[in-house]
């Protein structure tokens, strides 16, 4: 039940939005997220968008993981 998936905002209609993952679309409630725009990615759980995904933080996290991994591999060789 804590299953939540990143989906992209296609259109917004007051408290609801049409979101997509690839070509799969669904309608979700967005009233927990004040300022959304088309193209934002949101985390969807049980029909509710619970948070916006921060692309900059996502990139930072990924870079951090890759650094740790790279350091690891360097130390090994």
């Amino acid at each position: 039940m804590c299953l939540a998936v990143p989906m992209k905002i296609e259109t917004i209609d007051k408290t609801e939005a049409l979101v997509s993952a690839g070509s799969l679309k669904a309608r979700v409630n967005i009233q927990l997220l004040p300022s959304l725009k088309k193209g934002d990615y949101v985390l969807v759980h049980a029909g509710l968008a619970i948070e916006k995904i921060d692309p900059r933080k996502a990139k930072d996290t990924l870079r951090l993981y890759r650094d740790v991994a790279r350091k690891s591999m360097e130390e090994e060789s």
């Binding site: 299953l3 998936v5 989906m7 993952a21 690839g22 070509s23 799969l24 669904a26 969807v44």
Partner: peptide, 12 residues
């Protein structure tokens, strides 16, 4: 396919 993969992820 990408869409099948998304669908499966979404529904677990």
């Amino acid at each position: 396919t990408a869409s099948c993969k998304s669908f499966c992820e979404i529904l677990g």
